[in-house]
């Protein structure tokens, strides 16, 4: 009996050990093959918004091919969760789908954390309806408010298309929205809902693919989410041009970049800890890499790049910070 126990346990653990060490060995070998001018060492810790994550994943992936000695890790604690750690000095970068809030600024100040904000890309929140919806040609911001704000039309929050514009069908609108934890919701909350509660009948989901399915499956559905999700599902959904005061504008790369698509286009940020920037050369190098290649990687993963001179300007700011 005793033998069995020893044999069983030792095979289990040696198996685990053999596997992990074998894999570990491979990684270092791959690393040594790559050699470029100035090789850096150390780690870069990044956390924050899951919206910004794909851009940073792409950046880190390509950066580590050039600098295999630098270990970049990217987390997805959400914009708020990321700032919570960033303002305690636990991370070097914090990704955000909204600017830093006052409370978070105070927390940083209290802990003696200085930081710099960098704009990485734009995202255009896209309002979509079902493919079979033939009546909606555009929506104004006021109409959006009427649909989404709780109690704007009736006490029980049941909104019909006919309540929004005359001549539209007398059928109830089904609403699909990202959940309260997402930066997408935060942004919509600010520009459309004005911090009022959201329509009680709206179906909330943290997974944007669920929203896509929801709108796809119901003729009377309306929903909103990041531009990338619309682009990927273009043939299944109908995007609604938004009238922000200067006539209806459809979200496209051009209208989002130029700022013409108002008010639903939003910038995506990353915040860098100044102390890390000065003391760790790899953090500075990675920040530089983000700004140099941000345009390409943002477009790669479905976001909209900033105009070129905005990146150059921010690179100058970055250089100034090193001194």
């Amino acid at each position: 009996m005793k033998n069995w126990k020893v044999v069983a346990l030792s095979t289990m653990f040696s198996g685990v050990l053999a596997f992990t060490t074998a894999c570990g060995g491979n990684a270092t070998n791959e690393g040594e093959k790559n050699g470029s001018s100035q090789q850096l060492q150390g780690d870069v810790k990044m956390d924050g918004s899951s919206t910004v994550f794909p851009i940073m994943e792409a950046t880190a992936e390509e950066y580590m091919a050039e600098q295999p000695g630098v270990k970049v890790s990217v987390g997805v604690s959400g914009t708020g969760g990321g700032f919570e750690k960033f303002t305690k000095g636990e991370t070097d970068f914090s990704n955000a789908s909204r600017p830093i809030k006052d409370e978070e600024k105070q927390a940083a100040q209290k802990n003696g954390i200085e930081y710099q904000e960098f704009k990485i890309a734009y995202d255009g929140l896209s309002v979509v309806v079902n493919k079979e919806n033939t009546w909606v040609d555009h929506l104004t911001v006021d109409e959006l408010k009427k649909i989404w704000t709780s109690g704007a039309v009736s006490g029980n929050d049941k909104v019909k298309w006919s309540d929004i514009r005359k001549g539209w069908p007398d059928e109830e609108i089904k609403l699909f929205s990202p959940g309260h934890d997402s930066g997408t919701f935060d942004y919509f909350d600010e520009v459309i809902l004005n911090k009022q509660p959201i329509n009680k009948n709206a179906q909330l989901s943290e997974d944007d693919n669920v929203l896509v399915k929801g709108v796809e499956g119901d003729k009377n559905a309306i929903g909103y989410f990041g531009f990338a999700y619309y682009v990927e599902n273009k043939n299944k959904l109908k995007v609604v041009p938004i009238d922000g005061g200067n006539g209806p504008v459809e979200p496209t790369h051009e209208t989002i970049r130029s700022g013409e698509y108002k008010p639903l286009s939003r910038p995506l940020f990353t915040y860098v800890n100044l102390k890390s920037l000065k003391e760790k050369p790899q953090v500075y190098d990675f920040a530089k890499y983000i700004l140099e290649n941000g345009a390409k990687f943002s477009e790669d993963v479905g976001y909209v790049a900033l105009p070129k001179d905005e990146y150059t300007q921010q690179l100058k700011t970055l250089e100034g910070l090193k001194k």
Binding site: G24, K45, M46, E61, M64, V72, S73, G75, S77, G81
Partner: peptide, 22 residues
């Protein structure tokens, strides 16, 4: 793990118990 701040993107393997992982 999300609360702990364990990252999602990592392109290296942990070498000891003090390393980050996913």
């Amino acid at each position: 793990l999300i609360v702990l701040g364990i990252p999602t993107f990592i392109a290296y393997l942990p070498k000891s118990v003090f390393d980050t992982f996913t």
